[in-house]
Amino acid sequence: MQEVNGAAADGFSAPCRGAGCTAREAAGRGKQHRRPAQAPALLCAVCRARLGLELMRLPDLYEECALALGASGPRREKVSGGPLPGMPFNATAADVRAAVMGVLGAWAALVVQERGAPAPRRDAAALSRFLLQHVGWLAAHSAAGEFSEEIARVVRRARRVIDPDAARQVAVGGCVEPGCTGSLTAAVRARAPHEPAEITCDADPAHHWLGHQWLQLSRRVRPGAGGAQEARWISAADIARLWAMAPGSVYRHASQSQWRRRTRAGRTYYYEGDVQRSLEGRKAGAASAAS
């Protein structure tokens, strides 16, 4: 098989190496959850589109982090530029700004070295524009997966600085809408456990549900290899957030209904089928009491 810049050149559809598909694989525990990338690209259409959007957003995130330099967060004294000595200084915001410039600068240098392109100015906006101009070439580079992962990671870090209460992303699975190749992600806020989570598709924002519909959706999530529906295990914290329940109620239901459980890395997860039956029974009982 011939390769062009590290990518297959015979039209072979290899599994996508993008950040989104990496998360799909981690959630599904298998490479079958990665979307196909049509050669010579090593990223699927969804991951490439996401990469472009994140590159477009990075300059604004970089500037917003500048506004957070004097905000609350890990603090230290800064004596050269910025706040006066002894004034609050958000070290996390400064570290993230340095990381943004480091990531953009490193990948721009790769393009300059391997393509002979003129070097852009060293500022976030110019570097992002430069990488967007070469994003097609980068998507077919042997390091496309690393590029996608590093951009996604620094975007997440910047968003956490700007909004420390930003929603945590919980992978749900493949989109349940017919013909859609996207992935579903539930956004839950640690500081607002009683607000319903939102479940969205990374390929089509019109595919959108509220958190309390999660377990119902899981019946429709695409099955794994061989057509068998994969067992799903959910943490108590995610059950509480997705269903707007007090954590104590989750543990009470788990004990009373004898949910099956397993432990990974010191955390307890409950079997989705048991959770679903209990919570649907709870909802039906509440409806009967109200009638």
Rank of each mutant, 00 (worst) to 15 (best):
A265S: 06
G285V: 06
L132S: 06
S13L: 08
C175D: 05
W137S: 01
V176W: 03
P247C: 13
R252H: 13
A49G: 09
V100K: 01
C16Y: 04
G18A: 05
G105L: 08
L51I: 05
G248K: 09
E54N: 11
Y270L: 12
P59Y: 09
A246H: 14
A171N: 05
D163E: 15
P205H: 02
G102W: 01
K283N: 07
D274F: 12
R157L: 14
Y251N: 07
P40M: 10
S80H: 12
E54P: 02
H194V: 09
G6W: 02
H208P: 00
K283D: 12
A286C: 01
E177Y: 12
L58E: 02
L127R: 01
Q169C: 10
I234L: 15
G11D: 07
E114D: 14
Q113G: 09
V46E: 10
V275S: 02
A237Q: 12
G211L: 09
S13Y: 01
M56Y: 02
A203Y: 01
R157Q: 15
A26N: 11
Y62T: 04
H141R: 04
L131G: 03
S235V: 04
R24G: 11
A37Q: 03
A39N: 00
K31C: 06
A143Y: 03
Q169D: 14
Q258D: 11
P83F: 08
R189H: 12
G266F: 11
A45Q: 12
I239E: 02
V103W: 05
V188Q: 09
G145C: 01
G102E: 04
C16I: 05
A45E: 15
R48E: 09
L138I: 13
C44T: 07
L104K: 06
T263N: 11
V112C: 14
A8R: 08
H253F: 14
A237V: 08
R261S: 15
R260K: 12
A94F: 11
A125L: 13
R122F: 14
C44Q: 00
L217F: 05
V275L: 07
R29A: 12
A71N: 09
F147V: 05
V46Y: 01
A109C: 06
S128A: 15
G182R: 02
D163Y: 02
V188G: 08
G6K: 00
A108C: 09
Q38T: 13
L210N: 07
A192V: 09
L210F: 10
A19F: 07
A265T: 08
R121Y: 03
G174R: 14
Q113Y: 10
A186R: 00
W209I: 04
S255N: 15
V4W: 11
R262K: 15
R121A: 14
P193H: 03
A27F: 10
D202V: 08
P164A: 10
